[in-house]
Design a protein around this nucleic acid. Structure first.
Length: 287
DNA sequence: GGTGTGACAGCATTCGCATA
DNA sequence: TATGCGAATGCTGTCACACC
């Protein structure tokens, strides 16, 4: 495996704005965590080179270790937490569907890890070498900015996706190994929040509804998902608000109300925290 | 009027620890 | 594994104000 560059870019915040394509390989200590539940409007591919971490995606927790490829769709809620004290090394690829042009059909392939089976592909050693070589070439092109480098990266990314689709197809034909599921109570609570985000939701109300202690529910939620009860509710509400801002012409005040915020000032603060833009700025950026 | 921000008080949530 | 308690933290709602 050739030595890759140590590029880095702003990461693990919902503020990332990726216009076309970004790639980076970086190292970071176990102290580094995503601070909040996290989602964005671009595709993400994560490759783990060393270390271990738990990755919460949508409503499941996955244990990620060396040689694992992870595929995250736009607007999919995710958050990573470290499980070891060791330094970790990873490659991250972010790209927009529109940039990927006609090849974006690969994203919708029935065997694409973006849309079928588990979002995690655990690679054998020879497969890891192949994928790392592709990443190395992508990073080299990305850094050098030589003539037609984006076309070259597009071809390399297509090769990576085709490889992933074939791996996934083979895997789906074999007996499925169950991923790390969340505690049933946590799943129930999450599903309830997703269906009732516009209502008033407190730890007290939900612990009563699901016959458990608020202390225990709060702790269980944090342990299982990596983020707190209130973080999750805020993320679900802001995702819905973003959807309404993109797809409708409703006023911000109305949207805030519709997604469950009693208080407008609080809505603005939470929206900015998770989207790094005010509601109207967000609407302009996504129209 | 609609949008956006800051200060502040009250209280819901989280954390650390203990117990069954 | 599940729960409870006290203390600390920080989220939430209210109000005031500025800008367009």
């Amino acid at each position: 495996m050739p030595e890759m560059s140590n590029d880095s870019f702003q990461r693990d915040t919902a503020s990332e704005f990726v216009e076309t394509f970004t790639i980076a390989r970086d190292k970071f200590s176990s102290n580094h965590h995503m601070k909040v539940a996290h989602f964005h409007d671009f595709y993400e591919i994560y490759y783990s080179m060393t270390g271990e971490k738990n990755y919460f995606i949508k409503d499941k927790m996955y244990r990620i270790s060396k040689g694992d490829l992870l595929f995250i769709n736009p607007y999919e809620l995710h958050k990573a937490t470290s499980t070891s004290r060791l330094e970790r090394e990873r490659v991250l690829v972010y790209f927009q569907k529109k940039w990927f042009g006609t090849k974006s059909d690969l994203l919708l392939d029935p065997f694409s890890p973006f849309c079928s089976g588990s979002p995690v592909l655990s690679l054998h050693v020879h497969e890891q070498r192949f994928v790392e070589e592709l990443f190395h070439k992508m990073i080299d092109e990305y850094r050098s900015r030589r003539r037609n480098y984006l076309l070259c990266i597009e071809a390399l990314l297509s090769e990576l996706l085709i490889f992933a689709i074939r791996c996934n197809e083979r895997r789906l034909q074999q007996p499925v190994e169950e991923q790390h599921s969340l505690h049933p109570k946590v799943i129930e609570v999450m599903q309830y929040i997703t269906r009732h985000y516009e209502e008033r939701l407190t730890l007290g109300l939900l612990s009563e509804k699901f016959s458990t202690s608020p202390y225990y529910l709060s702790r269980l939620f944090k342990t299982m998902t990596g983020f707190s009860f209130v973080d999750y509710i805020a993320a679900v509400r802001i995702m819905e608000a973003q959807k309404l801002l993109r797809d409708t012409n409703q006023k911000v005040t109305r949207i805030a109300e519709d997604v469950g915020f009693d208080n407008l000032a609080h809505f603005y603060k939470t929206f900015k925290k998770l989207s790094s833009a005010s509601p109207l700025q967000y609407r302009k950026m996504h129209r």
